[in-house]
């Protein structure tokens, strides 16, 4: 699907540091995610996952280091980098003035796409939102709002999709709908970067996993290798053991 730039990593993060006052949120993080991967970024609360994603998306600035999306540096070449990236934020944020369709059209327009209704209709259908297309965002349930957030991240067909805890507080039906659609996108060549606290989801979906702890990357390998190396039966067991070892 994105064969013209196939040799480039989807995401390339080098020596990224970020502090908020005295708090060092990221301490020299290096990470490479190849195109087409379904990749999990894990870590306890406050590990720096959202900070790293925010810097990758241009929502925050690194104190040091470089980040590239599909070979585009996120500050110098921000237009190309942001076009290559779709982000589903962790919080349920929405603009209360608009309907679902208006929200998706506006987001599409921000990315320079004016006549994008065919793809918007497809997104609505895949996320089971077709009957809510003309409904105001305010009146949607939390799960529906989460689906719209996912739709907004996909309107410009980004090769790299970041899902920041997309299933936090959502019901089983939405999880299944969401993962089916995301797997479909991954199968079509989209790179998926997922952060989640549901480790069984990461284990079922992802090939590789990175673990952040207090702003440092403490593991980055294939899930099967991590389980083997730590002699663990599940990702959760391996994760808990890893965090315990790092803290002692």
């Amino acid at each position: 699907m994105f064969s013209q730039e196939r040799s480039l990593p989807a995401v390339e993060i080098r020596a990224v540091q970020k502090s908020y006052g005295a708090l060092q949120a990221l301490r020299g993080v290096d990470l490479t995610i190849e195109q087409g991967e379904f990749f999990a970024l894990l870590g306890p609360n406050g590990a720096g996952k959202t900070t790293l994603i925010s810097i990758l998306a241009g929502l925050a600035r690194a104190d040091a280091g470089t980040l590239k999306v599909m070979g585009h540096e996120v500050v110098q070449d921000y237009r190309a980098a942001r076009r290559a990236l779709g982000v589903v934020p962790q919080e349920l944020v929405f603009d209360p003035f608009f309907s679902v369709r208006e929200t998706l059209r506006i987001q599409s327009g921000y990315f320079g796409l004016r006549h994008n209704d065919d793809w918007i209709d497809e997104i609505l259908e895949n996320l089971h939102l077709t009957d809510k297309a003309e409904v105001n965002m305010r009146t949607l349930s939390g799960g529906m709002k989460r689906r719209v957030l996912i739709g907004q991240a996909l309107v410009h067909r980004p090769p790299v999709i970041v899902l920041d805890e997309p299933t936090a507080g959502v019901d089983v039906e939405l999880r299944q709908t969401l993962w089916k659609f995301i797997r479909q996108l991954n199968g079509a060549g989209h790179t998926i970067l997922l952060t989640t606290h549901y480790l069984e989801e990461a284990e079922a979906l992802c090939q590789r996993v990175a673990v952040l702890h207090k702003g440092q990357l403490v593991a980055c390998e294939r899930i099967s290798e991590l389980l083997l190396g730590r002699q663990a039966a599940t990702l959760e067991e391996a994760f808990m053991g890893l965090i315990r070892d790092v803290e002692t």
Binding site: G58, V93, D95
Partner: peptide, 12 residues
């Protein structure tokens, strides 16, 4: 409300 994020994510 946090919805400024949609503008900030865009290549503007």
């Amino acid at each position: 409300s946090g919805s400024l994020v949609f503008v900030l994510l865009a290549p503007l």
